[in-house]
């Protein structure tokens, strides 16, 4: 099932994110997902997130699909050139993975193999363009594909709270022009900023899923403010997280804060994307509290 169909039906689409393990044992990941994420629409599977080497996204997607979930294949341009990316997409289609999220990817220098060659032969925009070409039955070089062309729900990302919103909006528009059908956003903690962003972004007419992270502690919030691009946790949230450390540690504060953001932003977006970062177990509670 392509999640674009749900957007077309006016559904509020909820997705969450899981990261494949650095190893070959995926049972735990599949079990967790089955237990906590079955209630949501689809599950993103990250692609060597933060440039840290892990099991591939595609096999993990297949395992999740076999377990009855709807996976979204994340695909970055950091590790593969245009040949490998296209071949990965054909493989995904053949294995029944038809939801994808196209990203440029973090730089190799950010991860655990800083000496690796950063590829970036394509970027998110040209990757989306490439997918459209495949859907038309030709590859990027114009050679025809044999048989039926693949069809994907093509997602992309955007950073609404970035300090360079203009550049982000420009890029978002380029992505739309290149074929992006829906967007997932970087984590939002500041509803007002998101709402302002959506005022601009709605002109593109593409569904946007609000990105949410459950804040785990004041320390984590400060760390993200300092180090994570496009993320800004307002001071009042940090104060609240710091006020009752036990409550924060138990996840109660975090879920409350995230739910508040979701409630405030919901009228302005078409879906929700949860980056649980290990707190997958708290997803059902968060959705309940947010009234979804």
């Amino acid at each position: 099932m392509r999640i674009t169909e749900l957007f077309d039906n006016g559904e509020f689409v909820v997705t969450a994110e899981v990261g494949p393990p650095k190893g070959i044992h995926v049972d735990h990941l599949v079990e967790e997902a089955k237990e906590h994420l079955s209630g949501i629409t689809a599950v993103n599977v990250t692609d060597n997130q933060s440039s840290v080497m892990r099991m591939g996204s595609l096999p993990t997607c297949v395992l999740l699909k076999n377990a009855g979930l709807t996976p979204i294949l994340q695909l970055t341009c950091r590790d593969r050139n245009r040949i490998a990316l296209q071949s990965e997409l054909l493989g995904a289609a053949a294995l029944g993975i038809d939801n994808i999220l196209c990203l440029t990817g973090d730089h190799t220098r950010m991860g655990d193999h800083p000496g690796a060659k950063p590829v970036f032969d394509l970027d998110s925009v040209s990757l989306l363009h490439t997918v459209c070409q495949l859907e038309k039955g030709v590859d990027l070089a114009g050679n025809p594909l044999v048989g039926e062309a693949p069809k994907f729900a093509k997602g992309a990302v955007v950073s609404p709270c970035s300090d360079s919103v203009d550049a982000q909006l420009a890029k978002m528009e380029r992505k739309v022009m290149a074929g992006a059908e829906y967007f997932q956003t970087q984590a939002v903690f500041d509803s007002e900023k998101f709402i302002q962003f959506m005022e601009q972004a709605k002109q593109f007419g593409k569904p946007v899923q609000l990105g949410v992270i459950i804040p785990k502690s004041a320390g984590m919030a400060k760390f993200m403010n300092k180090n994570v691009a496009g993320v800004h946790v307002p001071q009042w949230m940090i104060d609240e997280l710091a006020a009752d450390k036990e409550k924060a540690k138990a996840g109660i504060t975090g879920v409350e804060l995230a739910a508040k953001v979701i409630k405030e932003c919901r009228p302005y977006c078409q879906g929700l994307h949860i980056m649980a970062l290990g707190w997958e177990a708290k997803v059902p509670e968060l959705l309940k509290l947010a009234g979804i």
Partner: peptide, 30 residues
């Protein structure tokens, strides 16, 4: 990343994710 189609999501305070002393090129371009 030598991107040719616009900014990635890695810019923070107008600086590059790879080097916080380096201006994000796409922000300058914008």
């Amino acid at each position: 990343k030598s991107l040719v189609n616009g900014q990635c999501g890695g810019a923070k305070n107008g600086k590059c994710e790879v080097d916080p002393n380096k201006d994000c090129a796409w922000e300058k371009i914008q």
